[in-house]
Amino acid sequence: MMRSVELFVGAGGLGIGVSQAGFRPAAVMDWDRWACDTLRENKERCLDPIAHWPIHEGDVRQFDFGTVDGSVDLVTGGPPCQPFSMGGRHRAFLDGRDMFPQAIRAVRELRPRAFIFENVKGLTRSSFANYLEYIRLQLTYPDLVGKRDEEWLAHLARLEDHHTKGTEKRLRYRVVMRVLNSANYGVPQRRERVFLVGFRADTGIEWHFPKPTHSRDALLWSQWRDEVYWDLHRVARKNRPEGGAAKARALKIAERPLDEPWLTVRDAISDLPDPEHAPGTARGFHDHRFQPGARSYAGHTGSPLDEPAKTLKAGVHGVPGGENMLRRTDGSVRYFTIRESARLQTFPDDMVFHGSWTETMRQLGNAVPCQLARIVASGVRDKLSAA
């Protein structure tokens, strides 16, 4: 089995997907106590694949990668995204929370055959264009390190000089980058994230991101043309939404799409009991408890039941109201439970989470959907296996 190292593991979304793709971690690490408690409890409960993870709680800046025995095929991680998040303060390289330097150090010291790093779409903002190129070139030439007291722009210039020389003498990776929408890969959530994937140049591997398998047009067709969606969920015609613009768009689709339909919130949670109106029956499910206080206001109207969820958010000071709410067909709203949020992030149903509702939602809001991680990592594994 191929070996991996996972940085900034958090609640384990990326790590679970990577393990499901066939990698066995030699080390997984995070500094957050609650996230590590979540992983440790699931490890003690022998939840696959976390049961096999060597978990290290602590600051990655203090981790000695020399303690990882043997070769490593893959390094993965989602370096803390707050400097780049659309909801953050956009400080980028001035923000001490930027952990990309540690991701690059891991690649430099472990020399894996490949890496997968994920971050928020905000990293691709035009205001961060130069810093994103800086990250890409550092990952391309990880052993061309910055000098003491060297400004990052000066280091960028040296990297550009080296890159244009075309030399093959240094450790080098071929890096590709793309923004992926999780909904296009069977995740019941519209969650756009940027992925940076690199293969060590001496592997000679050619690779591209996996082709999307699901689409909005296929969902619209299923709802408003052949109406299979409503029949599958046994929704009577009188209880279906009017459709409006979505139905109008569906009528313009010339042929049945070949993709699978986007998955919706209803697809993800319809088999769970209502935690607000039937709390007694909800007790049989881990972390499925009603959280009061949800309210709808301009810009924060919740996720419609019959669409993929909006992007779950972690929040800077607690959970943002609108992004983590369900909006029913009658217009009423409530917060998603932890279990429902885990479903939207495609975590295993038997996984439990540590911390308060707000803390756990932070873990979930920072996570990579396991399903998307598995698909990307499987594509990488297939190429490494064939090399």
Rank of each mutant, 00 (worst) to 15 (best):
F347Y: 10
T301K: 04
G13W: 12
A26Q: 04
A278T: 06
V145Q: 15
S356G: 00
D330A: 10
A254W: 00
D59E: 07
D259E: 15
L123Y: 03
Q371L: 15
I104Y: 05
L251P: 04
T38D: 07
E307V: 05
L196Y: 09
P273R: 12
P273G: 07
H163Q: 13
W53A: 01
L123V: 04
T76M: 08
A51Q: 09
R89A: 14
S85N: 14
I104Q: 02
G321Q: 14
E160F: 00
G365D: 07
M361F: 13
A278H: 05
R40I: 13
R136S: 08
T124Y: 01
L94S: 15
A218N: 04
S19M: 07
A367R: 12
P80I: 09
Q189H: 04
A298N: 10
T76G: 02
T140D: 05
S182L: 11
Y185R: 03
R374F: 10
H214N: 14
D271R: 11
T358R: 11
R339V: 06
G280C: 10
I338N: 07
S182C: 14
L344N: 01
V380N: 14
V5H: 01
V187T: 01
A27F: 08
N324H: 02
G166Q: 08
R178P: 00
E44I: 08
N324T: 03
M99P: 07
I104F: 02
Y297S: 15
K383F: 08
R172M: 12
A183P: 14
P25R: 04
M177T: 14
A386Q: 10
L144G: 06
